[in-house]
């Protein structure tokens, strides 16, 4: 049997070799970035925890009010108060910070890529299959290569979260721009608009609701990935779940799980309405 089988393609070895090469040559750079980013993240977490929880809770409720109205604000208030009561305030803040930072970076990268995919057919043909690939790959595979570059901890978590959470914003930015009616593009052209003027004065503003829907999905994906990233030491609510698994404590596990669901709902409600308003 062994003798007749076709030799195995050493795909794993190739990938390892590729990653080794990248690690050897770029790890010094990524480790530097990692150090700074870690400092920033810790600073945010520390400052949020420095204040009494009720201050932060009211602050978030106000933000929710501004962005999405009274109902969502009330929901935010009650939700966070509940998490505080469960004595999960610190892990909640850790998770929230990771989600916000990862989303921020993901959106910053995704929108230009989405725009590129929308205006260049060639770019579209390269980017879309890549997105399919990124989204089908099981999420925690991204964790493995992150470690040699960024070390164990929150930065690796953010790195894999960014990769995992980018696709919806890229896709929906692209879609939002392509959805701008041809008539309007023609009108802009008739007045002698340059490509850049069309993009900033017409296409992007009209795509905002769609892009916001993408960002909303990115936030949800980021949250799920940040939880998984507890496996490589990201802490937060995911860390609580992870610990419960290791100690076989279902009560504690579910409690942390429910906390994650509540956090997800708060984030979803706040960001869902932003796009709809316009």
């Amino acid at each position: 049997m062994e003798n007749f089988s076709i030799p195995k393609l050493p795909l794993d070895d190739w990938i390892d070799a590729g990653l080794d090469f990248l690690t050897e040559n770029f790890a010094f750079l990524t480790k530097n970035i990692s150090e700074y980013l870690e400092k920033i993240i810790n600073f945010i977490i520390d400052s949020l925890i420095f204040f009494p929880p009720w201050v932060i809770i009211i602050l978030f409720a106000l933000i929710a009010w501004r962005l999405s109205g009274r109902q969502v604000a009330l929901f935010t208030l009650i939700g966070f108060a509940f998490l505080w009561n469960l004595r999960l305030w610190e892990p909640t803040i850790e998770t929230l910070t990771l989600v916000i930072v990862a989303t921020f970076i993901a959106v910053l990268i995704s929108i230009p890529i989405g725009v590129l995919a929308a205006i260049s057919k060639k770019a579209y043909r390269i980017i879309m299959p890549l997105l399919d690939f990124m989204q089908t790959m099981p999420a925690f595979v991204y964790l493995i290569p992150a470690i040699p570059f960024f070390g164990l901890g929150s930065v690796s978590a953010i790195f894999s979260t960014v990769i995992f959470a980018m696709p919806p914003t890229i896709r929906l930015t692209c879609l939002g721009i392509k959805q701008v009616p041809k008539e309007l593009i023609e009108a802009a052209d008739a007045f002698g608009s340059t490509k850049r003027q069309k993009l900033f004065k017409l296409q992007l503003p009209l795509a905002i609701p769609t892009i916001m829907a993408g960002i909303n999905q990115t936030i949800m994906l980021a949250l799920s990935m940040v939880v998984i990233a507890a496996m490589i030491g990201a802490g937060g609510l995911g860390g609580e779940v992870w610990r419960a698994i290791q100690r076989l404590q279902p009560g504690m596990g579910f409690q942390a799980g429910i906390a994650i669901v509540i956090l997800a709902m708060i984030l979803d409600r706040i960001t869902q309405k932003i796009g709809q308003k316009n």
């Binding site: 009616p181 309007l184 009108a187 052209d189 008739a190 007045f191 002698g192 503003p205």
Partner: peptide, 17 residues
């Protein structure tokens, strides 16, 4: 286009935002 032509369209094509 910027200086010589003004164009008016059947379905108005106003910028909705």
């Amino acid at each position: 286009r910027r200086h010589k032509f003004g164009m008016v369209f059947q379905h108005f094509a106003l910028f909705p935002h």
